[in-house]
Design a protein around this nucleic acid. Sequence first.
DNA 1: AATTTAAAATTACACTTGTAATATATTAAA
DNA 2: TTTAATATATTACAAGTGTAATTTTAAATT
Lengths: 128, 128
Amino acid sequence: MTEKVPSISEAEWEVMNVLWKKSPQTANDVITSLQGQKDWKAKTVRTLLDRLVQKGVAGVNKEQRIYTFYPLYSQDQCQRAEAESFIKRIYGGTVKSMLVQFMEEDSLSEEDIEELKSILDEKPKKKK
Amino acid sequence: MTEKVPSISEAEWEVMNVLWKKSPQTANDVITSLQGQKDWKAKTVRTLLDRLVQKGVAGVNKEQRIYTFYPLYSQDQCQRAEAESFIKRIYGGTVKSMLVQFMEEDSLSEEDIEELKSILDEKPKKKK
DNA sequence: AATTTAAAATTACACTTGTAATATATTAAA
DNA sequence: TTTAATATATTACAAGTGTAATTTTAAATT
């Protein structure tokens, strides 16, 4: 497992986020979803969709006259892949150092902290 | 504060990591440091240094015949900037969702977990 | 059927990035 | 001092990305 996820550019992520929320969707659906969000021309969004298909990150149904698009990888899968390469690049590969930096920062609420603590508590003692 | 950090590419990060470890350093110092690490030609490293200077991420001393280079931003500052934009892009801006994903993954050792817990415990109740 | 409209396909173009090579200036060596 | 070595400066070039516009095709409207 851990199938290779092709790299997804920043603009492409926006489009994928829309497809992950609901799919399949036509190009127009996607364009509409992004209105107000980003101010891209329709053609721009269309280009991004095409590139995602080329890259094999999204798929397309061509049965109907008007195509519909859908993700080929789960959001979770893509997030992990991206996070892994990010951490390697920025934190020398150690997850902990990043977590430490973020936890030290004041970006977490009281509730967040409690939640994180309980997740850590629940972690079963690693066997092996 | 939170000065705008110019964006640093993947290859450029490698070079900055060398400068953060010690500075100032000559181009040759940097090239040597990267030997075995990456297999870049000397000219490539030189180009990266020049680009970092252009971007204003690194500085250069031209007093001596042979220039020396140094970082203009701290590693911590760059990491936070990069992490912030990363989290916005990939996790919709919520730090917690990312932390959760990472903590759920099995990338943390027993000791890491203990350390993270104590950091969370030490976090003073937010005054605010 | 001719025309307008709307999808889809193709093409565009500048900027960034990876990955250097070539040219120039200067210093050190012969 | 001519030459070789080295540092710096300039140039290169393809792939990826942001951001579309133009062209073609097919369907809907008049």
